[in-house]
Design a protein around this nucleic acid. Structure first.
Lengths: 224, 224
DNA sequence: TTGACTAATTTAATCGTTTGATTAATTTCA
DNA sequence: TGAAATTAATCAAACGATTAAATTAGTCAA
């Protein structure tokens, strides 16, 4: 009824429509938010008829869920390889390797969040964070929690005695240093005097976070 | 016409209405966002007639601007005293005092952002940040820029040689560590296993940020 | 290769509801 | 009494959702 039985015969045509709708949905939902984004605007941006939203995704919420899912998938394919590379290397007893892995993970997050071409879907994630719905849980369980847990384990290697306090809360503050680039984007750009984030600015941000990590995990030689 | 000439005679009645509308506007705008918040819902929450929004604030946008302004005023009265206390003390050549002042400023921000009773208006600010309108400039120029500039000056005292790099970008990452409490609230609460932010959690967050600052500005190269 | 047949997909038009805005009448109070 | 403030009722516009008709494309008998 509402969900037609898939037929391999005419799949390509339908898939192209669904792709166009999801791509437009990410852009418009990210720019305007769920409520402010109209199904008519999304359909126009996708270049398809408005009624196709109901046909392919049941309703507006269904299209939104599909857009979130597509972002989660993309984040997974971009971030998970980094996880696996880290897990492959045995960093359990190598602080230097752990620090390097931590920098790599945060550097990847910077690349994902700071780039201007990612503004739309990054903002969609940020919005979803603020009023977490069912879609949020999917991203949290699939991406956020694994990433945070991995980072907490790396922190544990760097600070096995726990002198720095709860690793989890520490990881949150690390993520915050990256998240601020998107969340307080307008404030940051004004304050540091940038008008866009290019490769140069991207590298400056990575260096900034890297230095913060170096200081945070430096061995303070309280020589008597 | 649209803006009635103020008449001292019946001021109190009108002021009570305006206050109720602004209070409700902060709550509903913060909870639902500008578009999703309906003027009927705001009027009902305020316990007044919907048409009074036009009468007192011209239109929905006017009420939104007034709500932003009220938040800016409140932030000013809570934050500016701390600025003045810092400016009163001469910290230009006292790293210890600068570090203490920095902790105090970030601690005040934590108190403003992390408390659950501030969720509504804090979220309103976060939303405004993501799609900065004219109202954003008011808050940026009035609160954000002065705060960030003061913090950058404190950082300069702690790192006069500039070994840590651009103070402004460093300040942004410091603010990010606080902002994350509100922006990634749902993620943080789940990850650290909290269900609410009470006094205990608030103190834990302050301690976390304090330790981060200690490490960041610790003297590593100094011999005894 | 045709050309009717069928299901999947797309389209234009319209439904009822909600929205912000507005009006005219009413109430309040010095 | 009169200006200010409030109220109930209504407006046009935009919204998500829905319908029925039109179009597309693969299937298969001839």
């Amino acid at each position: 009824m509402t969900t037609p039985i898939p037929n391999p015969a005419q799949r390509p045509r339908a898939d192209a429509t669904k792709d166009a709708l999801i791509r437009a949905a990410v852009a418009v939902f990210g720019r305007d938010g769920f409520q402010a984004a109209s199904t008519r605007a999304i359909a126009q941006e996708a270049g398809v008829n408005q009624a196709l939203i109901k046909y392919h995704f049941a309703n507006k919420q269904g299209l939104y869920d599909a857009a979130i899912q597509s972002i989660a998938d993309r984040m997974g394919t971009e971030v998970l390889p980094i996880f696996h590379a880290i897990e492959a290397n045995r960093v359990e007893d190598d602080p230097a390797a752990s620090l390097f892995a931590l920098k790599r993970m945060l550097g990847a997050m910077i690349g994902l969040l700071a780039r201007e071409d990612a503004a739309n879907w990054a903002q969609l994630i940020v919005r979803e964070q603020q009023s977490p719905g069912p879609a949020f849980l999917k991203i949290y369980d699939g991406i956020m929690a694994p990433a945070l847990t991995t980072m907490a384990r790396l922190v544990n290697v760097l600070d096995p005695a726990g002198r720095l306090g709860d690793p989890k809360l520490l990881v949150i503050t690390l993520v915050g240093q990256v998240l601020v680039l998107r969340v307080a984007h307008a404030t940051m750009m004004r304050f540091v005097g940038w008008d866009r984030i290019g490769d140069k600015e991207l590298e400056e941000i990575r260096a900034r976070i890297g230095r913060n990590l170096d200081r945070l995990f430096a061995e303070t030689e309280h020589a008597p």
